[in-house]
Design a binder for these strands. Structure first.
Lengths: 218, 218
DNA sequence: GTCTATACCGAGATAGAC
DNA sequence: GTCTATCTCGGTATAGAC
């Protein structure tokens, strides 16, 4: 668990000399602390005291920047949605790959993303609160799921030689297979119970999707 | 927020003299209340007061049957794992279906299960607490995921004519695709953002898996 | 705007009567 | 074993000094 930008509280007089740009700096500082605590303990498990401690500010400072805990959580989720899934960089290099290499690369990128603890924790929180905060779940779908599907669909549609009947469905199958694998193996700790290497899974998945393409016409 | 009227229904025999046994009526009554509250509000969001109210017993009665909140939660998850995913009934009828019908039926059964609110809520809680209660997540994998995979693998291995290179991987792809679809569409409320019918998805998924089988040799 | 201190409530858990 | 009443702690949010 990497983290802990703790600020040691100073006793006695404090000549606030090192304060750079009071307003948004403090706000960002609070967000960082909130990020660490919310992602680790979930919404209900997070206390404002803990956030204040983690951010190195007083509780009242938090309440001077955010209306209440729920608003803080909302802003954090929006911030994370933009931070964890940045706007699509150009996929020109990716699109130049041939089908098999493309799908393998996409899979690797997916798992690289999934291996970040922020991502796993964020996913847990989003799923956990998807009943009470549906709009946050939808934001996740919009920022984390849709863009990945769009890339796959775009590639598939530019490669009719793959002979894919329904590119949108295939894209979901591909992305969904990767996501479920990561969910069961990593998030739900299924590695020990039903171990399987990512390489084997990716290989089988790519082969399944491309089977019409790879099959040599007799 | 209106709430359900609390009725304590006692069946005839209630000796109520011996120590609480695993099968006692009160114990079951508490579990039912705990089930409703934990599934709706999650672990941290559930208070023992609320459970007592929902179960129609006093709080102390809960503590006479369960050591503390965490133990109650543990027992509840074990109970739910056995209740929501009962021991495999014989799949003889299922196994008699031909490949396409078999996979379609399996998909339908999966979604029928997913449509129960207990299942969705249970999934949310399991994912939410998978970091703090890893053994519960593994129990879920063991009871909810593995059996489904086993059925698919068994079928695939009895049908070599399907020409599936790696039945275990294909089983995971199939089951994982279904799970991700339900996750995005239903749990994460993606229906409105990226709508797609289950029929279209199942159709494409079955077709993809069986493509080697269905392709007529030229 | 930021701090310390505090109000107020609900949480988990327990005591003691019956 | 079950209840009512209560303890103690930690939760969100606010007051008032600077």
């Amino acid at each position: 668990m990497p983290r802990k930008p703790r600020i040691v509280k100073r006793s006695g007089d404090q000549t606030a000399q090192e304060e750079p740009a009071p307003g948004s700096a403090k706000r960002h500082q609070i967000m960082q602390g909130a990020l660490a605590v919310f992602l680790e303990y979930g919404y209900k498990g997070t206390s404002m005291d803990r956030v204040a401690e983690e951010a190195g500010v007083s509780k009242q400072t938090i309440y001077s920047h955010f209306e209440d805990k729920e608003h803080l959580f909302h802003e954090l989720v929006e911030y994370l949605s933009g931070s964890l899934f940045p706007e699509q960089q150009d996929h020109t290099k990716l699109f130049e790959l041939e089908p098999e290499a493309f799908l393998i690369r996409v899979s690797q990128l997916f798992f690289e993303q999934m291996d970040r603890w922020e991502y796993k924790s964020f996913f847990r929180v989003v799923v956990a609160e998807s009943g009470r905060f549906p709009e946050l779940a939808q934001l996740y779908v919009k920022r984390a799921v849709e863009p990945g599907l769009a890339v796959l669909v775009a590639y598939f549609e530019k490669h009719p030689e793959l002979r894919l009947q329904d590119p949108e469905v295939i894209a979901r199958i591909f992305r969904g297979s990767l996501a479920s694998f990561a969910l069961v193996q990593d998030i739900l700790q299924g590695k020990r119970l039903v171990p399987m290497s990512r390489e084997r899974y990716i290989s089988g998945l790519v082969e399944t999707v491309l089977i019409s393409y790879q099959r040599k016409p007799d």
